[in-house]
Write a protein that binds this DNA or RNA. Structure first.
Length: 110
DNA sequence: CCCGTGACGACAT
DNA sequence: TATGTCGCCACGG
């Protein structure tokens, strides 16, 4: 087994995001007990492309519900993936964000 | 070991 | 309300 690190915790939570739902970096960070390390979560997601099994990084966005990572996916790929799962996106902003929002602190109800 | 980087978040103006 | 700045901490070089 590889060397586990904070990234692995992030990936583990991200993989539990149900289809058609999204969550925020801060929510994951908070779930991991590092609410002030929201940036680290985003940093981890950037490397998620090399993670296995693959992580649905397109379901992880910022607390504003904005596709801040869209640029990293390339073009409108991220938006298309979300819409493909039933998440409506308008101008890089998730519609009904509070409705599709999936909070690990609540759903996983530790 | 020290420095720079970053897909964020909260607060200050 | 909108824009700008600071803090935060893991990872790589």
């Amino acid at each position: 087994m590889p060397d586990y690190s904070f990234f692995d915790n992030v990936y583990d939570v991200a993989r539990q995001i149900p289809t058609g739902r999204v969550t925020s970096y801060g929510a994951i960070a908070r779930y991991l007990g590092a609410k002030n390390s929201s940036r680290i979560v985003g940093y981890a997601m950037q490397a998620a492309g090399s993670a296995k099994p693959p992580v649905p990084a397109h379901r992880v966005i910022n607390s504003k519900g904005i596709l801040s990572a869209k640029a990293s996916f390339g073009g409108d790929l991220m938006q298309r993936l979300l819409e493909s799962e039933g998440v409506k996106v308008k101008d890089d902003q998730v519609q009904d964000f509070k409705t599709v929002f999936w909070d690990p602190n609540v759903e996983l109800a530790l």
